[in-house]
């Protein structure tokens, strides 16, 4: 996996580079601001970019804006946005265009290195990786519209789908059979009125429906 990293805190950036290279991935560029990220992605065409939300010069949301710019210019490049805290609106902005190949994680998640590398791999492959924190906040925000139509169990399954988990991972997390998960997923697709198409695409669409009340 070829990775570009945009993170202004040098210590954290170096740590990421070390971790990913240790796992056999190639960090083709490690930059410290949004403009440099856009340039580096255009130059290296990586599989995925890891982007910190807050970077110079204003330390607000330039990372997010750069990430959206990258998504618009190169739809094949996955973007995993890192944040110190969860801002629901940021997540919604990031996901509004196309949630395939997008991730939004709390920085703390790097503590569980394998989970983080898995999430990054998923995003690079065109999947999604949403922080459970994001999911629960968005769930709270979209309660009114979806909770009425989905059962509690279906909500749980959808939340895990939003995090980017596979059916097998969902069955493990909820301690139910994989067949049961498939049934719930099918019910969700039906209730959210999603057209029959590629499974992955429908999952992404379900997540999108779920996120946008």
């Amino acid at each position: 996996m070829r990775v570009v990293i945009a993170e202004d805190a040098a210590i954290f950036r170096d740590g990421l580079v070390r971790l990913l290279e240790d796992r056999g991935h190639a960090v083709v560029a490690a930059v410290a601001d949004g403009d440099a990220l856009v340039a580096a992605v255009a130059e290296h065409r990586p599989d995925v970019a890891v982007v910190d939300v807050r970077m110079p010069p204003t330390h607000t949301d330039e990372g997010l804006r750069a990430a959206i710019a990258v998504r618009e210019a190169h739809s094949d490049v996955g973007v995993l946005v890192f944040s110190q805290y969860i801002e629901t609106r940021y997540a919604a902005r990031l996901l509004s265009a196309n949630s395939a190949g997008v991730g939004y994680l709390l920085k703390d998640r790097v503590a569980d290195t394998s989970d983080f590398v898995d999430a990054l791999t998923r995003v690079a492959a065109g999947g999604t990786a949403l922080d459970p924190e994001v999911v629960s906040q968005l769930l709270a925000a979209s309660n009114r519209t979806i909770e009425t139509t989905l059962t509690r169990r279906e909500n749980e399954v959808l939340a895990l789908m939003a995090e980017g988990r596979s059916n097998a991972a969902i069955s493990q997390a909820l301690v139910i059979g994989e067949g049961a998960v498939e049934k719930h997923v099918a019910n969700i697709f039906a209730k959210l009125d999603l057209p029959v198409s590629h499974e992955d695409n429908r999952r992404v669409l379900a997540v999108l429906r779920y996120l946008q009340p």
Partner: peptide, 8 residues
């Protein structure tokens, strides 16, 4: 965060 990552 880096510390946690390194320990992980």
């Amino acid at each position: 965060a880096t510390l946690a990552m390194t320990l992980g």
